[in-house]
């Protein structure tokens, strides 16, 4: 069963005179029980994707396309009221990036959790249990957000999102600032949600994290999906030259940055946006490629 179906999603921001094309023609399908990891270079549009689905984009955003939650509900066209009443935190949860700015500064973690549980008709007494799931010690719940280290704040935001137990969870960089054991703890928690029938869209820049838990991986580049394939194929035999270059930048690989810079989203080229940095480009690349591997000369033939 399909949990989420995104069709032709585009997002544009108007900005003093210019327009930023943050997402272009995104097509994705996530099945129930699937963990989809969205990875890509900084600024390629990953968080905008999360915010578009949740209706959290700022006013200067223009959104096109469709995003169906379950069979019926089009998140992009159902209106703010329905999103607020039925969707956010209920059918669709978010672990936001930058936890430090997402937490109410005048409430302790325990109080924030209890309030969230109560608001969703759950027992506020579950606070300690939900916190423990997220890897947070009971004693740390009595601190105020400003007393938390970056990693603790991250775990508290995770606990807050889990408190509402949404069938589809978007986790936007949920492991930032955690040490490796806690990273693995959080990732395994997301994996278990999927194994129990939940669905997770994991947005991460951490390729090792995606490799550990994802069923499928969507690699984004300059507002588009470059490659969307099963995780083991993406890591075992990357098909898109951008994916291969990104893997090469890892410290346990070549630790070499991709030469050049991503294009400005205010002036995307007409054809393949990776062309100026791509060793395989030919004249054919002046035309926008499409499909699960958006490349005219993939490194392996995609199944």
């Amino acid at each position: 069963m399909t949990a989420l179906r995104i069709e032709g999603l585009g997002v544009r921001f108007r900005l003093h005179g210019a327009a930023v094309q943050a997402l272009s023609d995104i097509n994705l399908q996530v099945r129930r029980g699937e963990l989809l990891a969205v990875v890509g270079e900084s600024g390629c549009g990953k968080s905008v994707l999360a915010h578009a689905l949740l209706g959290l984009l700022p006013r200067n955003a223009q959104v096109t396309g469709h995003a169906y939650l379950g069979e019926d509900l089009d998140l992009l066209h159902c209106g703010e009221q329905r999103l607020a009443r039925e969707v956010r935190g209920r059918r669709l949860g978010l672990i936001p990036q930058s936890p430090a700015t997402a937490l109410n500064p005048v409430r302790t973690g325990r109080r924030l959790l209890a309030e969230t549980l109560r608001a969703h008709g759950r027992d506020p007494g579950l606070a300690a249990e939900v916190a423990a799931d997220a890897g947070l010690d009971d004693a740390d719940l009595d601190r105020y957000p400003f007393q938390l280290s970056g990693g603790m704040a991250q775990r508290l935001t995770t606990a807050l999102a889990l408190a509402t137990d949404p069938p589809l969870l978007i986790a936007d960089e949920p492991t930032t600032g955690l040490d490796r054991p806690l990273v693995d703890h959080t990732l395994d928690l997301l994996r278990r949600r999927c194994d129990a029938g939940g669905t997770v869209l994991l947005i991460t820049h951490d390729l090792a994290a995606a490799q550990r838990v994802a069923d499928t991986v969507a690699v984004m580049y300059a507002s588009r999906i470059a490659e969307h394939r099963p995780a083991r194929d993406v890591f075992g035999a990357p098909a898109h030259p951008y994916t291969a270059a990104l893997l090469d930048a890892l410290p346990n690989w070549a630790f070499t940055p991709i030469p050049g810079h991503p294009p400005m989203l205010t002036a995307l080229p007409p054809g393949c946006a990776f062309a100026p940095r791509c060793p395989r480009r030919t004249d054919a690349c002046g035309v926008q490629p499409g499909g699960p591997v958006a490349c005219h000369h993939p490194l392996v033939a995609a199944a």
Binding site: V39, G40, E41, S42, Q97, G150, E173, T176, G177, H205, L207, A245, L246, L247, A249, L250, P251, F255, T256, P257, I258
Partner: peptide, 13 residues
């Protein structure tokens, strides 16, 4: 932890 939240290419850069 200055590169923790950066993608692999930006981190290497």
């Amino acid at each position: 932890e200055a590169t923790t939240m950066l993608d692999a290419s930006t981190q290497a850069h």
